[in-house]
Amino acid sequence: MSDKAANNAPLKKSITFISRSAPYGRDNSQLCLEMALACAVFEQNVNYVFLDDGVYQLVGAQNASAIDAKTLGNALETLELYGIENICVDEDSLNQRNLMAKDLLGEFKLVNRSLITALIRQSDCVFNL
């Protein structure tokens, strides 16, 4: 990666991404995804959590060509393709937004806040956007 990498840093860390923003309005959701995919390419242990407005990224039947953007829903499928297996969705965030599992792009692991708390505590690094 870097020529600075000569010292004895760990080769693998546990990195958690909290994707907390709705798609399209701002690019936070896109940036979060790009960072996670990069970590997966370099074989890090990646956790990906959809929280708050981030769950709107998972709504099915997105068609962003209407606003000249790439459909983020399609891009999210790449998370699994890149080997990111621990993808979870905060159930409270869905409930607060009247979203049900059947409204989503696919099947996701629904989790509660205490599980997310535990996840970020045991991670080496957390990106939250």
């Binding site: 990666m1 870097s2 600075k4 990498a5 010292n7 840093a9 760990p10 080769l11 860390k13 990195i15 790009e34 960072m35 990069a38 970590c39 390419v41 370099f42 890090q44 080496d124 690094c125």
Partner: peptide, 11 residues
């Protein structure tokens, strides 16, 4: 590229 961010996270 973003590889530099991953590298920074590791180091």
């Amino acid at each position: 590229g973003l590889g530099q961010l991953v590298d920074a996270t590791l180091h």
